[in-house]
Amino acid sequence: MNVSISHQDDILTVRLDGTMDYTATSLMNGLISDINSISASRVIFDLAKVARVDSVGLGMLHLAKDEIVGKGRHLTLRGAAGSVRRLFELTDGDASFDFE
């Protein structure tokens, strides 16, 4: 998985590209640390280029959400489509996350 981060005004955008599965665990753990070091009240995870998310990837997104929201920030998922969006619907993740 590839990650790029941009920070403009009070919004931190994290663009993910690839597959979110067990192979991305250490990358996501580092990403959460990076996010915590950047001051922004809103964090957007752009999933438009994520081809697949498995249960481990979904769990990592929940952990990221807990960490981000726990710091008083707002998390939004952007661009989730196809099977990625369907996974959120099947697991009630669409009720746990804000989407745009």
Rank of each mutant, 00 (worst) to 15 (best):
N2T: 05
N2Q: 15
V3F: 06
V3T: 15
V3N: 05
S6Q: 13
S6W: 02
S6M: 10
Q8C: 05
D9E: 15
D9L: 08
D10Q: 08
I11M: 11
L12T: 06
T13S: 13
V14Y: 05
R15C: 03
R15L: 02
L16A: 03
L16I: 11
L16C: 03
D17G: 00
M20P: 01
D21F: 01
Y22I: 12
Y22L: 09
T23L: 04
T23F: 01
A24Y: 03
A24N: 04
T25F: 03
S26F: 00
L27T: 12
M28P: 01
N29P: 00
N29Q: 14
G30V: 01
G30W: 02
L31H: 08
L31V: 01
L31Q: 07
D34C: 01
I35L: 13
N36F: 07
N36G: 15
S37G: 03
I38S: 03
I38H: 07
I38G: 02
I38A: 01
S39E: 14
S41N: 06
S41P: 00
R42F: 05
R42I: 12
V43P: 03
V43T: 14
F45G: 02
F45V: 13
A48R: 13
K49L: 12
V50D: 00
A51S: 15
R52E: 14
D54S: 06
D54T: 02
D54A: 07
D54W: 00
S55Y: 08
S55M: 09
S55Q: 08
S55V: 05
G57N: 05
G57C: 08
L58M: 15
G59F: 11
M60T: 08
L61E: 12
L63A: 15
L63C: 12
A64R: 08
A64D: 12
K65M: 14
K65F: 10
D66P: 01
E67V: 15
I68C: 08
G70L: 09
G70M: 10
G72M: 02
R73D: 06
H74N: 09
H74I: 08
T76C: 09
L77D: 06
R78I: 02
R78M: 14
R78Y: 14
G79P: 09
A80V: 14
A81F: 10
A81H: 14
G82E: 05
S83D: 09
S83Y: 02
V84W: 00
V84G: 03
R86S: 08
L87S: 11
F88T: 01
F88E: 01
E89H: 08
E89C: 05
T91G: 07
T91M: 06
D92M: 00
G93V: 05
G93H: 09
D94M: 05
A95C: 04
A95R: 13
S96Y: 09
F97P: 04
D98S: 05
F99Q: 07
F99L: 04
F99A: 04
E100I: 12
E100V: 13
